[in-house]
Design a protein around this nucleic acid. Structure first.
Lengths: 133, 133
DNA sequence: TCAATTGTATTATTGAACTAATACAAGTGT
DNA sequence: ACACTTGTATTAGTTCAATAATACAATTGA
């Protein structure tokens, strides 16, 4: 079964980002395993009724993030998530989000302990909402 | 002493956002107390060599965030930070950041425990770098 | 009173992000 | 070999956020 990707034009989120996010999710959830081939740029573009460049942009970002690897004329494949590039990229993204969170917390004079409490709450809420599906 | 606000054109961050962030910081750090008056829109615009509308945009956002209150023809004042609107807004922002962080962590298959460890690290780093100033 | 000062509203300009049209380059696989 | 499929590069058009120019409205306070 081919990979299922959908886009909605437009909920404000750029098409290329929708593709990036969905592929990330598919990989994270295991529905796309390491080594598996993604749809070719033209194929996916045709399916989504968009320009191939838009898919290319998404694939380029995914490669920069270490999610996939492109082989010049042979296609695009899910990369080994344990690879150094993937790990470095992921840590970088996570660190950025954490720094933003801490800066915001400091702004509003919220202690680090309270930040932890908030996170626990949201985490619990997230787990609960996932069970409903 | 008048409030000190600086902008740098352009490090990519929109001018109005630079103003918003700096006022937020000034308020959070206590250098701008509740009830204090901010510079009038025109005054700050002249000082920063920008258009008054840009300052107005910043003040509008600050009011929406519950940081300041505008009195139609009398100026703009730092609002009581304990006010419900301010608190609600701040919790909302914090929650958004936390949710983004947790979603990203789930993406990359990082456990909640590891997220906590990361935060501890960044928090320690942040404290250390502040001492140097 | 009424001039000065405050924030507000409307419209225009600019620049960057996003998408597309089109042509190119290079392995693949029979 | 060589047609086919893959990703790449260049250029252009379009949309939208950010900023500015300008005029308006309302309260203050000497």
């Amino acid at each position: 079964m081919p990979v299922q990707i959908h886009i909605s034009i437009s909920d404000g989120v750029p098409i290329y980002l929708q593709i990036v996010n969905q592929v990330k999710f598919l990989v994270a959830s295991g529905r796309l395993a390491a080594g598996e081939e993604l749809p070719p740029i033209r194929g996916l573009a045709e399916q989504l009724l968009i320009n191939p460049n838009t898919v290319a942009r998404a694939y380029r970002d995914l490669e920069a993030a270490g999610i996939v690897e492109k082989r010049r004329t042979a296609g695009t494949y899910v990369s080994d998530q344990g690879s150094p590039l993937a790990r470095r990229e992921r840590v970088k993204i996570l660190t950025e989000r954490i720094d933003a969170l801490l800066a915001e917390a400091r702004h509003m004079d919220v202690s680090i302990e309270d930040v932890f409490k908030f996170i626990q709450q949201r985490h619990a809420a997230m787990l609960a909402s996932r069970k409903e599906e």
